[in-house]
Design a protein around this nucleic acid. Sequence first.
DNA 1: GCCAACGTTGGC
DNA 2: GCCAACGTTGGC
Length: 157
Amino acid sequence: MAPRSFWLMKSEPSVFSLDDLAARRSTSWDGVRNYQARNFLRACREGDGVLFYHSGIDEPAVAGTARVVRTAYPDPSQFDARSPYHDPTSTADTPRWDAVDLAFEARFARPVTLERMRTTPGLENMAVVRRGNRLSVMPVTPAEWKIVLSLGKRAAR
DNA sequence: GCCAACGTTGGC
DNA sequence: GCCAACGTTGGC
């Protein structure tokens, strides 16, 4: 079996937070409307680890972890005329956008802030700390995964 | 196929 | 609220 891969996925907690995921245990990770991010979703395998990142708040941070429990399938919201994610140019025959399913795994003792990741040795090349990276799904290396998890377990600073 | 205009993301 | 980054759109 191939070793699992790791990802970072962004969400605005006012829309969907890690606590929301914990409450419902699993969710469809839908609404991704960027080709590069979609291609990363398509590369997700069952069991892959996900850093659940909260954006759009005072201190953007990885709040905890999730796990991929279902690989990519056509995102139903693209066909839903009432959804904000509706894409009228996508058809059932040739769906354009995919979703995966995520299950809650763990919440960090302390969120690992963007600031902290910026200043932690070993994370300086992480996709999320790179300037101008607005992708909502991005890859994480096994080394980065390990470091972020160790930071999340400890109390900050 | 180029590129200006425009829209969105997301940190600050 | 501002604005940098950057993807997308559309005229040519």
